[in-house]
Design a protein around this nucleic acid. Sequence first.
DNA 1: CTGAAAGCGCTTACAG
DNA 2: CTGAAAGCGCTTACAG
Lengths: 341, 341
Amino acid sequence: MTTRDRIATAADVATLAGVSVATVSRALRGLPNVTEATRGRVLLAASELRYRPHPHASRLASGKTRTIGIALPMLGQWYFSKVLAGVDLVLSPAGYDLLIFGASTPEDRRRLVGDADAVRSRVDGLILAGMQVPPEEVPQWVSSGLRVVSVGQEIKGLRSISIDDAGAAALAVRHLVNLGHLRIGLIGARAQEGAHGPPAERRRGYAVELRRQRLGLQRELQVEAELTVDGGREAMDHLLSLPAPPTAVFAITDELAVGAIDSVRRHGFDVPRHISVIGLDDHDLAAGVGLTTVRQHPVRHGQLAANMLLAELDGEPASDQHVRDETQLVVRSTTRPLADP
Amino acid sequence: MTTRDRIATAADVATLAGVSVATVSRALRGLPNVTEATRGRVLLAASELRYRPHPHASRLASGKTRTIGIALPMLGQWYFSKVLAGVDLVLSPAGYDLLIFGASTPEDRRRLVGDADAVRSRVDGLILAGMQVPPEEVPQWVSSGLRVVSVGQEIKGLRSISIDDAGAAALAVRHLVNLGHLRIGLIGARAQEGAHGPPAERRRGYAVELRRQRLGLQRELQVEAELTVDGGREAMDHLLSLPAPPTAVFAITDELAVGAIDSVRRHGFDVPRHISVIGLDDHDLAAGVGLTTVRQHPVRHGQLAANMLLAELDGEPASDQHVRDETQLVVRSTTRPLADP
DNA sequence: CTGAAAGCGCTTACAG
DNA sequence: CTGAAAGCGCTTACAG
């Protein structure tokens, strides 16, 4: 093994192979118009010196970064960590770097979403995961030249991958209705989560389905919570304190559902005997706790988004505007037919 | 709002402010030897043009990337997603970029760990999360000039943040012993997870504690599993099939514990009445399912690692070799005293 | 097929 | 305090 005092440059390889730097660049990138003999010598010299093009130099010169960025509001959350894993699954083998834009505060999000330029020089494409983009900011993204796809949320004017949130919620509610439940509660998100986006859509799906089933919408059965286990527990505490509590509850995430179930048990009741609970996600632990839920596939969402971006960067024509990944009812043991009165 | 056909460069700012490019660079970075008046004009021109230094150009010129990398074996797993969130929590406000090196296959890991050069040119510092580094590879990392810190695992010769895995396991086992349990099972990881690292250490802690308590180590009570809910369920299925099953089980992760509990219930038994189960992690959902466990703080691990790196990059002397973050027994409702015979 | 040269957009000595 | 120039390590027309 050769000792190297410093990292080899293209110039070093050129000297060793007896060619020009330009030829090194062409040979290594597999461009045409290089004889096999020259290419061979370059490859040999490069591996001899363990040469690797300096990324910033080639990015500066070519304008391509071979990097995809992903903007996320909450990195540690189940859905986003799965999306991220899916993205990496396709980017890593493709030789693309993955850059994280964490945007945990509203200011971070506003700054990020309002400044396409800052992003444009660092990445070739951007995945917006669970980010809202105000309509007035969309044009700058479209015209930025950056490939952008939204995950987990449709954004008018940008391409996206998401589930049919309203439909998934309706599926959950329909399951409860089919079991004979008439008083069905909702544990949703606080209003500041926005009028659009998954929480709002799921609430809408809940309302639509109840109406479709000719069950009235009862304001007191809908409660807002922070999207955590604690939030779910508190929400259910509240529902149980009602004069006439619901006999079944749809929680818009599995985490909420787990908290809700915990609340029911702490009150000395049983799930599903006294009250049925259904979630939405099919979280890693959902099967382990027997949670009935509607399954989504966040890893696949990430893969789809990354593949979409890579295809476009390869020059393929942009695909569909909105792809909606499927969703599926998974019945386990936290729901059951309403007991006869 | 000015229309811009292209992204502004330092030269544009220089022209507008009536100074040289060098002065723009100095003024914007807050270097000394710039009059307040000039700095003011530059700042104004820069904001006028919405100028932002091109990252690759400044990286190429300065040799600093203002980027930290993080290498992870499994992005979607609870522990790693929390570490990542912690890292981002400190890097984002500091203005550092975060680059992901996903290394989900053993080959990926070997390649990454065996090639400090490839990493060195992209980042100023690297966080190795849950990565094993063979002793013979350590020197190249030390001499690479890159700041490196390991998270979740001690690596001889590199700095690290981790918990005392053996100690945490011993804490869990001691809790079971204190409840009067004598036949205590272990659900651990498969051997290929390595002779070092958390799984091996936790198994060691289990063995050490049993010996300390003068309880013999029974080979048949230790079972290996994949580190998932399914793995935990299958492992417990096996333990329950034994002629004399354990009365309590320590699962080395909460996910395993949840799967184990599910198995017990599917067999028609009750946790903790018939069998006690304790995990290790304090996963987000652990409180919701009443799991007794040993808590660790992965978000904090990430924060500590990132802060360590930033401090060093700021020129502060390297800190301790190994920092061990604390751990804590959290008793909930999946463990209880051994019933009298 | 290959090389010499210009250029990507910054930073950093070096003068003044 | 400020500017002119060189240089970071590549890529990309342009010649030949």
